[in-house]
């Protein structure tokens, strides 16, 4: 399967899970709002240019906004994640490493510790920006901080669960691709 087809299917799957499963889970607590769909952006191949990332991030966020009826909140947060991704990756990947030839970020490609940092930083960016935009309309400052912490923790839990349940095959960059 080509990267394009695979990622389109992934996008549909992530959005379906977010809109029809995670958004609809029975109410547990006001701070428990699970988000997972932005993992799609984290899983995109290394080869995509930073402008391409922004376009994909915009579309991902916009589609979710259409479903959740939020006026551009997710679009904004996804754009931030897509923008920050190359910088975080360049910090975590050893430079001048000839042997590094993985196609997309995964725990096996980066190693568990750097991957955790990668996922955590981008998750934190996403949730902070999303919660900030919501908080501007409603809520107290303490609520804002607790909500960032709680949603980030839950998202990290979901990301690890996803990584452990669906380990992706390690794909190497080849000359033919």
């Amino acid at each position: 399967m080509s990267d394009l087809v695979k990622n389109i299917l992934r996008l549909i799957l992530f959005l379906t899970v977010q809109v029809f499963v995670l958004n609809k889970i029975p109410f547990l607590h006001q701070f428990i709002v699970p988000y997972l769909y932005f993992l799609f952006i984290l899983w995109l191949p290394f080869s995509i240019s930073s402008f391409g990332l922004l376009v994909i991030g915009f579309l991902t966020g916009l589609l979710l906004d259409y479903f959740t009826w939020t006026p551009g909140l997710h679009t904004a947060a996804c754009l931030l994640v897509a923008y920050a991704r190359p910088f975080v990756i360049s910090l975590l990947i050893p430079k001048d490493n000839e042997e590094f030839n993985y196609r997309e970020p995964s725990p096996r490609a980066l190693g568990w510790a750097p991957y955790t940092v990668y996922a955590f930083v981008l998750t934190l960016f996403h949730h902070t920006y999303l919660t900030l935009l919501q908080w501007l309309q409603f809520g107290s400052f303490l609520q804002f901080l607790i909500k960032i912490a709680a949603t980030t923790a839950i998202s990290m839990l979901l990301i690890f669960t996803t990584e452990l349940l669906f380990p992706r095959k390690v794909k190497y960059r080849t000359n033919t691709a």
Binding site: D65, Y66, F67, W69, P71, G72, L73, L133, L136, Q137
Partner: peptide
Amino acid sequence: MLFSYNQFHRAAFLGVASEFTGKVNT
């Protein structure tokens, strides 16, 4: 936010969106 306070933008944004999401949601 732009869409919450601007009636025209809100209507334009939501008109396209809800026809599309409505079909999937159904």
